[in-house]
Simulated assay, not measured.
Amino acid sequence: MNRWLLVEFIPTPSFNNEQSPQTNFDAKQIYAALKQSIISHFGDVGWGAVGLSLTVKYYSPVTNICIIRVGRDQHKIAWGGLTLLESVQGVRCIPYVIHLSGTIKHAQLAAITHNRQVIARYRAKAKAPAAYRDSYESYLESSTQEIEAMQD
């Protein structure tokens, strides 16, 4: 049995940089950063408990969301490692757990819903009319297909 964490990585500006940095990392780099965080804060015993079941199944650099699978009994260690994570590939970020699910299907539905909400915020910020067709439309279609195609 597994737990599925839907996580948003919110980039934070450094002290000398006013703008939010771009997240230019991928799923493997998130896995490596999470592994290091778990080892640093929970030791080899913590990593030994989580390591076999932990996988990063999906990451979107557009909306910064990530789906992580971990064993049911170890999900609190993985969540703790995420909470204590400070940066990925040198990019300071705040990992925000949006949803915890017992099935991949519910994680997929939450990810699709969250993607739509983030894109709606981007459009509102750009003051685009509701019927306006933009590059986000094709992104939503492709990301929805990619998320739905994930298998356990």
Rank of each mutant, 00 (worst) to 15 (best):
N2Y: 15
R3W: 10
L6S: 05
L6G: 03
V7K: 07
F9N: 03
P11A: 12
T12V: 15
P13Y: 08
N16K: 12
N17S: 07
Q22S: 14
T23Q: 01
T23V: 12
D26M: 03
D26S: 04
A27F: 02
Q29E: 09
I39T: 13
S40H: 04
H41M: 02
D44I: 02
A49T: 09
G51V: 00
L52W: 11
L54E: 01
T55Y: 05
Y58N: 05
T63V: 13
V70T: 15
V70P: 11
G71D: 12
R72M: 10
I77M: 08
W79Q: 06
G80I: 03
G80Y: 08
G81M: 09
L82G: 05
L85Q: 03
L85H: 02
S87D: 14
S87C: 08
R92K: 09
I94P: 00
I94F: 13
I94T: 14
P95D: 10
Y96N: 02
Y96K: 07
I98E: 11
I98Y: 08
S101H: 07
I104D: 04
K105A: 13
A107I: 06
I112V: 08
T113F: 14
T113D: 14
H114N: 04
H114Y: 15
H114L: 14
N115A: 03
I119F: 07
A120H: 05
R121G: 10
R123G: 00
A124Q: 15
K125T: 09
A128P: 00
A128N: 07
P129S: 03
A131Y: 14
Y132F: 14
D134E: 11
E137H: 07
S138Q: 10
Y139Q: 01
Y139A: 00
Q145H: 07
M150F: 14
Q151V: 15
